[in-house]
């Protein structure tokens, strides 16, 4: 079991770091780099949403944290002159702190109520970005410089993006590394004591509270981790697009994050990654269908839901029987 997992992991690494760039180089579809970078970053955000699903909460507010993260990084880089690499964790931590403050009251809500409040949260973030002076209103923050180099003790780990001949590959590599780290962390969380406790919350909150699980602390913790992921995804997005607007992340994006999780399968750690890939990449490929793009996309989504209501990864379930 251990060996096969290691094999699968290395196969995945080989695919994303070697085969995909080779394939893109061979076909000349350089735009795929941008699409796949977006997939990797969105799946980081979706990983956060998945974690809130894991404690039994429907989170439609990830767009808010992505927007906040993007703005924190953009403001620090443009106005404070801070290195992008430093703003990345700062953006994540800032989101985590905000989410603790917001989460303390709203995590008492359940089911549809929590879902609706988080949906409203996305609107709050957008409207705040429009109204606050520091975010520069509807004009947004533009011409954010590309990330500079990251060096430790004079040793260059990541070269400055401006000096790269093809920054798109650089962004792709960076986003994929971020995605892999995120999912390793997520996988570790799920297979730890914390993960077991989260599962108990998902199944029955009263029962787990009655046997001494600190449910209030756990759900705030899970929500903070989730928002941290959202924040760093948003910060990376702002840096790649070199701009951020109040409309960069709207309600539709929040809903999409949730859909990625659903489609991949809520019971599987790698579900959101697969779901993001299928939905986002599929959407991109469907652009050849022009005005029928949305029709086909949503039609396929509804069909998938009818055929596999428990997510695409539930296909594996039938073969192996259980987890």
């Amino acid at each position: 079991m251990k060996a096969s997992r290691l094999l699968g992991f290395s196969a995945f690494l080989l695919a994303v770091f070697v085969l995909v760039p080779l394939f893109i180089g061979a076909t000349g579809r350089w735009d795929f780099f941008y699409t796949l970078t977006s997939v990797a970053l969105l799946s980081v955000g979706a990983a956060g949403v998945w974690l809130t699903f894991y404690i039994g909460r429907i989170n439609i507010g990830q767009g808010a944290y992505a927007l906040v993260g993007g703005y924190v990084s953009a403001i620090l880089v443009t106005q404070g002159g801070v290195s992008f690499w430093l703003t990345l964790p700062v953006a994540g931590l800032f989101c985590a702190v905000i989410s603790i403050l917001i989460g303390l009251p709203i995590l008492r809500l359940r089911g549809v109520y929590f879902a609706m409040v988080t949906l409203v949260l996305t609107e709050v973030a957008r409207l705040s970005a429009l109204a606050l002076p520091i975010t520069n209103g509807a004009k947004g923050i533009t011409s954010i410089p590309l990330p500079g180099e990251l060096s430790v003790f004079g040793l260059t780990i990541i070269p400055a993006f401006g000096s790269l001949s093809n920054p798109r590959i650089g962004f792709y590599m960076m986003a994929v590394v971020l995605m892999i780290v995120t999912y390793l962390v997520l996988w570790r969380i799920v297979n730890s004591r914390l993960g077991h406790l989260c599962r108990s919350l998902q199944q029955n909150e009263e029962l787990s509270a009655s046997i001494g699980v600190n449910t209030a602390y756990l759900r705030v913790l899970a929500y903070a981790i989730s928002s941290f992921f959202g924040g760093i995804a948003g910060a990376m997005f702002a840096s790649i697009a070199q701009s951020i607007y109040p409309s960069s992340f709207v309600v539709a994006d929040s809903v999409n994050f949730m859909l990625y999780c659903f489609l991949g399968g809520l019971g599987y750690v790698f579900g959101p990654m697969l779901g993001t890939f299928l939905l986002y990449f599929g959407w991109d490929l469907l652009s050849i269908a022009r005005e029928y793009q949305l029709l086909i996309y949503s039609g396929v989504m509804i069909l998938l839901m009818l055929v596999l209501p428990n997510g695409v990864l539930s296909l594996l379930d039938k073969k192996e029987g259980g987890k």
Partner: peptide, 14 residues
């Protein structure tokens, strides 16, 4: 139960 939400969102797009 939440699966119906994906369906509802899909219907909205549709």
């Amino acid at each position: 139960d939440e699966s119906t939400m994906l369906l509802a969102a899909g219907i909205a797009f549709f």
